[in-house]
Design a protein around this nucleic acid. Structure first.
Lengths: 353, 353
DNA sequence: TTGAAAGCGCTAACAT
DNA sequence: ATGTTAGCGCTTTCAA
């Protein structure tokens, strides 16, 4: 190339022969608007110190050319990627069909669609976790959101020291207390559901708890305890399940086998509550006549049960949006609380009438 | 800056004062390995013409520095972004919790995780569709996958002329025939389910069809027709629903109200089949004793029904992977079929014994 | 308030 | 087989 004749500033050439699609550049905008590239850049980035006239001229040119900034170039020059990674462990992805998750992701995506950030979905399997780590640390993203079904798995926690990361779900161990996370207030939700059981006149309230090595399992059990202790009621009616309907049914049978009176049950999720239904019906008991049942999560299992299950609804969409919000704040250097707990709300249905 | 002293090639400086995190560059790798940047680039891009020795040396340096290529720079220089957009219309995102969808997305993500492409999730609402378009056409992605719940919505179809795009689900109108899409063979699946009904001895087979302005609704009805006509059976027992359980129940009632014998029903999805169950039970009829029922989709509604529903399973994961595969092929200039139909398989359960 | 100029980290001819 | 040299399109001091 002899003289300064770049890819034709101003109006793009119609025929190039090699390039099928011509993407207008900032330089073309500058030429058309009769200003420098720097000025166009300022307008695009809405810098305050640009004459309204010039702003108009530039915007005009942008409009006419249908100009869209090139992210790669912008990112390279500014050292910001405007990309947020959504890390989904593969084991979680398998249960991606979990409506809860799907909605969380949707909340994230929707929130970000109003910002200049872009969402990058990464499935990280065991075998690829190293690849994921490198990708995250390679300066390819401005921050990451890690959602894990086994919430509490903060295996990416240490990356948080060098990259803004927000987790969905609280960590299991306190050592990881420095990480940022957004979670639902499991204990409060469980306490509320249990309180509702008490309010409806129940006095012998059991619980089918979740695995005690998962934060939601622990917290929901504690919520149940909190309410019972507040009312001076017996806290011995505890059986553990693994969040599946089958485990719920078995836990309920064990509970009934104890031979002590039971007039209410709080299950740590709707699946287990559905299981409890079967066990209760097996014994010829009625719901809510003999035993009132409450669940947690608010999903298909509860809504289609007979009678419909009273349950704790999680604001999954808002949860996702909050994760995104916290992360963006973090990226932009604002100071944020490490812990964000979202409130749940109780959905009273026929199972606790 | 006076002389050529860039960000310290070779070993990065520990203290910079301003930069908190030092991301190694290709230049640093080159310095450490004692070769030129071009060579490092070649190794990174696995060019064939590099001496094994040099390859080792470079890889060594990469390892030691924990080097990760900067996507922005690479993209800027190569004019390829290595980014694939996943466009999800917001109306679809609402039903993102549809397990079918979730699994498709997972299939896409998982397939891409084995390539060098990255998945960019875009929620495109009515109000933001223009933003989405600009983003897609702004040279920010190499291609796009558009999944829509109302499969058949190919409103992004015209972009396909300038950007590789693959759609999930066939277009509704033939005018859009030039677009690429991956779909399940709805007609064949429906024909198979109906054939199974015939094989089980049923001779008066009705269908609860889906909306006739959606490809799956149309195709599944045609599949049912195909089988009946092949066996010379009556094709008049058709009622239309809208894919909801309620509509399925109503359609079934209308069918039963006709007062003609019916011993089998093919519903265009599991939800409607579930609805049909209620209507059948209302009339005091049994399944499969009096009426055999088959559905389509294979989801929760069918598997938890009593008796479990015979249904057409969709390879949703594979469907997603295929979309990604087709798109990547398209991006890389390979010639691909416009239409890719994936086979379904029939899941025989108790509802058609 | 605007422009000039120097890169951001990488790839891709072109030389060697 | 390897190195040299231009940029890719944008941001960002620094001057004016």
């Amino acid at each position: 190339m002899t003289t300064e004749t770049p890819s034709t500033p101003g109006i793009p050439p119609s025929e190039d022969g090699t390039r099928p699609r011509i993407v207008p550049t900032l330089e073309m905008v500058a030429a058309l608007a009769g200003v420098s590239r720097a000025t166009v850049s300022r307008v695009v980035n809405s810098s305050p110190k640009v004459t309204p006239q010039v702003v108009d001229a530039v915007n005009n040119a942008i409009e006419r050319l249908n100009y869209v900034p090139n992210r790669a170039a912008r990112s390279l020059a500014s050292r910001r990627t405007q990309v947020i990674a959504l890390v989904v462990p593969e084991t979680t992805a398998k249960v991606f069909s979990d409506p809860f998750f799907a909605t969380v992701v949707q909340g994230i995506a929707l929130y970000l669609s109003d910002t200049d950030y872009t969402l990058n979905m990464l499935i990280s399997s065991e075998t690829k976790s190293e690849k994921t780590r490198r990708y995250l640390m390679g300066g390819n993203v401005d921050g990451a959101i890690v959602v894990s079904h086994h919430s509490g798995d903060h295996s990416y926690a240490h990356l948080g020291q060098s990259l803004p990361i927000v987790f969905g779900g609280r960590p299991l161990i306190a050592t990881e207390a420095e990480s940022y996370f957004v979670d639902v207030d499991n204990a409060a939700g469980a306490a509320g559901a249990t309180a509702h059981l008490v309010d409806s006149g129940r006095r012998h309230i059991a619980t089918i708890a979740g695995p005690q090595d998962m934060p939601p399992g622990l917290d929901r059990l504690n919520g149940w305890r909190r309410t019972l202790s507040m009312h001076g009621l017996d806290q011995s009616l505890v059986e553990i399940g693994d969040f599946t309907p089958e485990s719920g049914a078995e836990a309920m049978r064990r509970l009934l086998d104890r031979g002590v009176p039971i007039d209410g049950v709080f299950a740590a999720n709707d699946q287990m509550a559905a299981g409890a239904y079967s066990a209760i019906y097996e014994r010829g008991l009625s719901i809510p006549g003999d035993i009132a049942v409450a669940g947690f999560d608010d999903n298909y299992y509860g809504s289609t049960a007979t009678p419909p299950l009273t349950t704790v609804h999680q604001p999954s969409h808002e949860l996702g949006a909050k994760m995104a919000e916290v992360l963006v704040a973090l990226i932009e250097g604002k100071s944020v609380e490490h812990v964000t707990l979202m409130p749940t709300n109780l959905l009273v249905r026929a199972s606790t009438l």
